[in-house]
Design a protein around this nucleic acid. Sequence first.
DNA 1: CTTAAGCAGAAGTTCCGAGA
DNA 2: TCTCGGAACTTCTGCTTAAG
Length: 245
Amino acid sequence: MTHDDADPRARHFPGLSRIGALLADPGRAAMLWSLMDGTARPAGELTMIAGLSPSAASGHLARLTEGGLLAMEVSGRHRYYRIATPDIATAIEALANLAHASAPQRTPERPPSAVPLEMRYARTCYDHLAGELAVQIFDRMLARHWLAADGREQNGPTQLEPTPEGAREFAQLGIDLKAQRARRRRFACTCIDWSERRPHLGGALGAAFLESCAAHGWLEQTTKRRVLRVTPAGRSHFERFLSDR
DNA sequence: CTTAAGCAGAAGTTCCGAGA
DNA sequence: TCTCGGAACTTCTGCTTAAG
């Protein structure tokens, strides 16, 4: 019998309190966070990351697997664990952002301690570019007056609008702003970067920008889910863009 | 040379008692 | 009640050795 089965208060959101309980333990959270780059790690490595004994870590991993948050594959004498689905990684990232937004602002510059290194520079966030590179590009877009806040901010992401100059630059990148506006989603907004704690470009325009970078051969997918590789052509392009004054 | 058996070590799980 | 760590156990890999 599960936690929710026993508690009639859980009937409105079946499974929600169970998921919350699984995420509440610091050891389990540390193990989940270390798998956010989409890799699979053996139980022994996750044990070290969580700072637990093998027996305690084994118990936590069993609960996370039973709860559907982790998937496990046996390879020889190793057991490899990974985040079960991309939806779960997305949910954990959203909760991490929420935790940061709602925490007391005592140490605003402190990044999360266990952000996988390869994810910090360039990765996908839903369908747009995120990471250190995304934040730098967004800063540069603002400095070059490609984008302006449209003044409709309401306790959430800042709505953005391309300036006439920005519209020309996005068109040069092959982005059809009219088509992006017609999509049934937010056109352009800020999205707080999970590892950098600063905004990057989100919304339909953010997704179109990432598509454009891929089409130009500046960014490409790696074997690790969500981790992006900057190609040599991309490196020189972004260096020019970021240093151009 | 090949193959199977035996052994040691590594990795991970289960069980159980202790403590907060 | 929940989590922890230690002990014992299972499973698997890799190495060595002996037999065919």
